[in-house]
């Protein structure tokens, strides 16, 4: 097992290769340590444009750290991250903001502004491309932004909840609003950190179906973390497993099986 981990930690094989416009995300030798606890140990991988990648692994394996490092919500200690050809590690704030604007990030907890309406929260997604007072609340928003946000809410089936306060929505509805907010960015890449972990199984499947369907419609590349192996098998093109900060395996979803993960959660 150890030798397998060592091998895979060097370079994730599927879809990897030289930098190319076909890769939306390229990570090389990425490491991160919190105090004495090393979370990522030289992770290297590439994600092809338009593909859907699932990251699986036990708690503390480094999934969320890897995902957050991709937009430098967590600063990596070493290594490089290239998003659509732009190097992120060491990039100036302006370049970082530009890259972030192209990436929709969906959190485990929806992270909506709870006192504002669902519509205002979706309009906030437009702050990636145009900020200012007219994007702060729906009442200030120009007609075209309101209409676009309403379209996004309709896409997630919540146009009837547009004016409801975010704290009056259920967990599933809140997560769907978060997806609408991410889509409002017109993202090229969507990163989702356990997007359905706080939802019941039925809502979880609904939200995952919605996320993947909308991502495909918008031709976005998706990388999501999950503890639900069925989600990984069903929705991803490719499954990457992390263990102890290393890539334990990287497989096409069609090759993925229960046997693959036998050692993963030990």
């Amino acid at each position: 097992m150890l030798s397998r981990l060592d091998l895979k930690s060097q370079q994730s094989t599927i879809g990897s290769g030289q930098r190319s416009p076909d890769f939306d995300l390229e990570i090389s030798d990425l490491s991160k340590r919190f105090g004495t606890n090393t979370i990522l140990r030289g992770i290297s991988m590439s994600v092809e444009s338009g593909s859907i990648v699932s990251l699986i692994g036990a708690n503390g394996a480094g999934k969320s750290t890897l995902l957050r490092s991709c937009i430098r919500l967590i600063e990596p200690d070493s290594g490089s991250i290239t998003v659509q050809g732009k190097q992120l590690v060491g990039a100036a704030h302006r370049d970082l903001v530009f890259v972030r604007s192209k990436i929709g990030f969906i959190f485990q907890k929806h992270n909506l502004s709870s006192r504002l309406s669902a519509l205002s929260n979706v309009i906030h997604g437009a702050q990636s491309r145009r900020g200012g007072p007219r994007t702060w609340i729906q009442a200030f928003a120009p007609k075209e932004l309101r209409e676009e946000a309403m379209d996004m809410l309709a896409a997630v089936g919540l146009s009837h909840k547009a004016l409801s306060r975010a704290d009056q929505l259920s967990g599933g509805q809140s997560q769907r609003v978060a997806i609408a907010r991410a889509l409002m960015q017109r993202p090229r890449i969507i990163l989702a950190d356990e997007p359905v972990a706080s939802l019941d199984p039925s809502s979880g499947f609904e939200v995952m179906e919605l996320l993947i369907r909308l991502a495909r419609e918008h031709k976005a590349t998706v990388m999501f973390t999950t503890h639900n192996l069925k989600h990984a098998e069903e929705y991803a093109d490719r499954v990457i497993a992390l263990k102890g900060g290393l890539i334990a395996f990287d497989q096409h979803a069609s090759q993925f099986s229960a046997a693959s993960v036998k050692d993963l959660y030990v």
């Binding site: 990030f105 907890k109 504002l116 200012g132």
Partner: peptide
């Protein structure tokens, strides 16, 4: 709560927008 701020930081919002919106 830091969550909404983090969400807007992640999408590249400006500091002013984060303060006003979250």
């Amino acid at each position: 709560e830091k969550g909404p701020q983090e969400a807007l930081t992640a999408l590249g919002a400006s500091r002013t927008d984060i303060i006003a919106s979250a």
